[in-house]
Nucleic acid binder design. Structure first.
Length: 672
DNA sequence: ACTACGCCCCTTTTT
DNA sequence: GGGGCGTAGT
């Protein structure tokens, strides 16, 4: 039974009475075991698994915990525990009550931009208005900060000089909101907001809610915990590891737990099983410089003869990366037990390149490279069009690949398909209602009569000779700006949809799309773009590489799709897992944020220079040096046995001189 | 008004 | 390598 493996402190926490329990679990003190032990305790006491809600920071963490529970109980029981990130849990619940569709943040940002760009900002005073991007991000922060006053008040309080624009901002946000509602789109914030709304009306009645990584909870998430209003709350966290302030995480939520819940109990786990004495001492030296909320004493359990943390100094940034790669090559460490951790993702490329030259395999979190790559987005958009027959964003993205078709005309075409299909775009493609005009009249721009030929509708038959019989004379071709090339493009689009419209199994559909002329042609162009030299010529070697790369990604997507029987489930899952999939195997390349909750035998923390780590740019923009110090603390406490820190005094490419990070002095690895 | 294309910027962290 | 922005061309 799980609990017998716990130490006394852990056992005390795991068997705490029902109520409000806060477990302060420093790095490496067996937090996961304690949560698993707690769940076992609940199950043994007859709590029904679906009355338990486990909230974690990543879906991977929740899977791991559920798997560990499954080892001690019937796997069926473990599977019945409600678990996942706040977002995943919210999504599961919300989709039963609404027909909301989750969209990638990037997509909705585009939609937001299109709304924003319709506004005219008279640049009064010298204060420029926020960009669309910044407005979107800051509004998201506002939502997560759980502020009860309106956005305008919040903005004015933060930046009084922005007051002159707040009316326009509200207007943009309002229109965006309506647009999202019209298309049933939801972003990550909407999930939480909708969930909160639903459970406030109708609380789900959990016997206990467990919340992992409680220090990174933001006020919106905290308000969900309050709205869930469970009989018992079990929160686990460590204020020294709070590193998500930029996402609204508020350290006062954990530090005020006792004030918030007057009958709260606090447990502390103080036995560190992960790291060697030397590593832990170093981490503690540095974190001492932050204000201490509770005194924390850590007892090192790990025994043995471990080497002291090493500091490597280099004269230049790339020499550092090469030096690290060589250090790894010589140390013959096991690659999967080794991680290189950095503050900024911009470090990753140089490191990866240096490792590659020495033929050391490495693994990077693949979010940006995989799910944001054009080919994957295109594939998923095509799947979306066949699954959700009126998805505007998917149509616009796909149709914009046509030569001469930009986002504006793509939107015209989409709207036309919707009209012709009596509200359903896909139907408009196959069976256009010929009694409806294909294009709505737009108000003419009389000042600029020059090219205003929109209503000079052309004969829809003009491209018939090259069109598939089922697509010939389609009213869409009345659009005067369509030319032969774009007609061919649309024809291939039609053929792709027509041949595959009955497929419903994800892997079959992906295979067919991948083979289609339409997809092949577009990805061919994407590959060519990537193989272009500075002079505009295409490097044939690079072209081949780019093509292989695209093929590989599509195969990976195909592999993923094999786990799903239903298109909707597949597409939704792709949005939720998009940030968690990683590619390849070997040395782990991670940002500090991504390293959260993980541990490795050997850890390298690189680019420890003032400016980069701590990232001083962020400190001036509302971050804090304390948060940067916590990031350092998180990074070094990932290490079990060997910790190597490194810095470089110069970046030759950017021509910047660096001084070593203050944390190295605080760690007493360098002396003033 | 819209699209294509060339040039310059930079690149914080995540669900 | 991508995204934003200005310019030329339709």
């Amino acid at each position: 039974m799980a609990q017998s493996q716990l130490n006394l402190e852990q056992k005390a926490a795991a068997s705490a009475p029902s109520g409000y329990n806060l477990i302060i679990a420093s790095a490496g003190t067996g937090k996961t075991s304690t949560i698993v032990g707690r769940i076992s305790h609940l199950l043994h006491n007859g709590v029904s698994p679906h009355k338990i809600l486990l909230l974690t920071f990543t879906n991977k963490a929740s899977q791991e915990m559920i798997e560990r529970v499954a080892r001690f109980f019937n796997p069926q029981i473990a599977q019945n525990i409600e678990s996942g990130t706040f977002h995943a849990v919210a999504y599961r619940y919300v989709k039963q009550h609404t027909n909301i569709r989750l969209k990638q943040p990037k997509e909705l940002k585009m939609l937001f931009r299109s709304v924003y760009e319709k506004r005219v900002f008279l640049n009064r005073s010298n204060q420029p208005p926020y960009s669309a991007q910044y407005l979107y991000d800051i509004y998201s922060l506002f939502l997560n900060s759980g502020c009860k006053d309106g956005f305008t008040k919040w903005i004015i309080q933060k930046t009084p000089t922005q007051e002159i624009y707040t009316e326009i901002y509200e207007d943009v946000l309002q229109e965006f909101k309506e647009l999202k509602k019209l298309h049933n789109y939801a972003d990550y914030n909407d999930l939480l907001l909708l969930y909160k709304e639903e459970i406030s009306k109708n609380p789900p009645n959990f016997a206990e809610v467990l919340c992992d990584e409680y220090q990174d909870t933001n006020p919106l998430q905290d308000s969900i915990l309050k709205a869930l209003n469970p009989k018992s709350l079990f929160c686990v966290g460590d204020y020294d590891q709070s590193i998500y302030a930029f996402n609204g995480a508020d350290i006062s939520i954990i530090s005020n737990f006792i004030q918030t819940y007057p009958n709260a109990r606090v447990f502390s786990l103080s036995k560190n099983y992960r790291s060697s004495q030397q590593i832990l001492s170093l981490a503690n030296e540095v974190i001492q410089h932050n204000q201490r909320i509770y005194p924390k004493k850590l007892e090192v359990i790990k025994q043995g003869n471990f080497s002291a943390p090493k500091l490597l100094g280099f004269d230049e940034l790339f020499l550092q990366y090469q030096g690290i790669a060589q250090h790894i090559a010589h140390s013959n460490c096991k690659h999967t037990e080794t991680a290189i951790i950095f503050r900024n993702n911009s470090s990753a490329d140089g490191i990866e390149a240096s490792l590659r030259t020495l033929n050391i395999p490495c693994k990077r979190k693949g979010s940006s490279s995989f799910f944001e790559s054009k080919e994957v987005v295109l594939m998923l958009d095509l799947c979306t069009i066949l699954t959700h027959p009126s998805d505007m964003m998917a149509y616009i993205n796909v149709l914009s690949y046509g030569k001469g078709i930009g986002s504006s005309m793509a939107k015209d075409l989409f709207e036309s398909f919707v009209r012709l299909g009596n509200g359903i775009a896909l139907q408009g493609v196959f069976e256009p209602n010929s009694t409806i005009p294909a294009y709505e009249k737009k108000s003419k721009n009389t000042q600029l009569g020059l090219f205003d030929d929109f209503f000079n509708l052309q004969a829809k038959e003009r491209f018939d000779s090259i069109l598939h019989a089922g697509f010939a004379s389609h009213p869409i071709f009345e659009h005067p700006k369509l030319n032969l090339q774009s007609a061919e493009f649309l024809n291939e689009f039609y053929i792709l949809l027509h041949t595959n419209k009955t497929l419903t199994i994800p892997k079959h559909l992906i295979m067919q799309i991948a083979k289609s002329e339409f997809f092949q042609k577009i990805t061919q162009n994407i590959a060519k773009e990537r193989a272009k030299n500075k002079d505009g010529n295409i490097d044939s070697q690079r072209l081949q590489k780019a093509q292989e790369n695209i093929k590989r990604k599509i195969m990976l997507l195909y592999d993923l799709s094999c786990n799903y029987q239903d298109m909707r489930a597949f597409l939704n899952a792709m949005v939720l897992i998009s940030t968690e999939a990683s590619e390849g195997s070997g040395i782990n390349l991670l940002s500090v944020h991504a390293s959260k909750g993980l541990e490795f035998k050997n850890v390298y923390v690189v680019d420890l220079m003032e400016g980069r780590f701590p990232n001083l740019k962020l400190v001036t923009k509302g971050g804090s040096i304390e948060e940067e110090r916590r990031l350092f603390y998180v990074a070094v406490t990932r290490a079990k046995e060997n910790l190597i820190l490194s810095y470089a005094t110069k970046d030759m490419i950017k021509n910047i001189e660096y001084t070593p990070s203050r944390f190295l002095y605080e760690a007493k690895l360098l002396a003033n």
